[in-house]
């Protein structure tokens, strides 16, 4: 929506200098260390990220008992996995999974901000944080999904989950046809963050 407003000519250069100034001052004043920000960013590369959610989805597809547990008691199912430490940590204290089926499609949103299940999905993409998605997803989810390339049959029920308290929601997508012979690792490689947010289906590469 940038064309509606005016900005400094050096908008991004200024922002970059501003944040660098802030970080360097915080280091000098003893608030954070020279390594704090890098360590946080590294943590989101290796420990919290959609690679965890993808493994969870793949296991649920492969193991019906695990899937039942994931849907009824998400933290218990996550605790069974061979994940790094901290899967019930920040923004993952109370996670819940909803299942897409041939009859029901789920979509997650946070109309008040950008609440998101960090340990399983990492950090949210820009579209999810955009006020335009947040305003439209609750009122016209089918149209929003259509604009994202997902056409749903009129007969399919759509459930939109507004993350307005402490539960952090994500979606167990439908397993695509033609994946019967795949290993869990191969299945996990197909699962995108968008599929776990309910704006895309999992597809098998042609």
């Amino acid at each position: 929506m940038s064309e509606r407003f005016s900005y400094r000519d050096d908008r991004e250069a200024y922002n970059a200098a501003r944040v660098k100034a802030l970080e360097s001052l915080l280091i000098e004043k003893g608030i954070i260390s020279s390594e704090t920000v890098d360590k946080v960013l590294g943590f989101f590369e290796t420990d919290f990220g959609p690679f965890n959610g993808a493994k969870l989805v793949a296991k649920a597809w492969a193991d019906p008992e695990f899937k039942a547990r994931l849907l009824s008691d998400t933290p218990a199912a996550i605790a069974q996995m061979d994940f790094p430490l901290g899967m019930a940590g920040a923004e993952g204290e109370y996670m819940k999974v909803v299942e897409n089926t041939p009859k029901v499609h789920n979509l997650i949103v946070c109309t008040l901000c950008s609440c998101y299940p960090w340990p399983m999905l990492g950090l949210p993409p820009y579209w999810y944080k955009d006020p335009t998605f947040r305003s439209r997803a609750v009122k016209e989810p089918r149209k929003v999904l259509q604009e994202f390339g997902l056409e749903l049959d009129e007969s399919k029920e759509v459930r939109v989950w507004d993350s307005s308290a402490q539960i952090r929601w994500f979606v167990l997508p439908e397993r695509p046809i033609g994946t019967e012979d795949m290993s869990e690792a191969e299945l996990a490689a197909l699962v995108t963050p968008e599929a776990m947010m309910g704006v895309a289906q999992v597809k098998v590469p042609a």
Binding site: N15, A16, V19, L41, P125
Partner: peptide, 22 residues
Amino acid sequence: LNFEKRVFVEPWETRIFGIHVA
């Protein structure tokens, strides 16, 4: 809708995210 899938669209954004988490 703008379907921008990146988490950060400018490198400097990573730094303010890290500061907030700290």
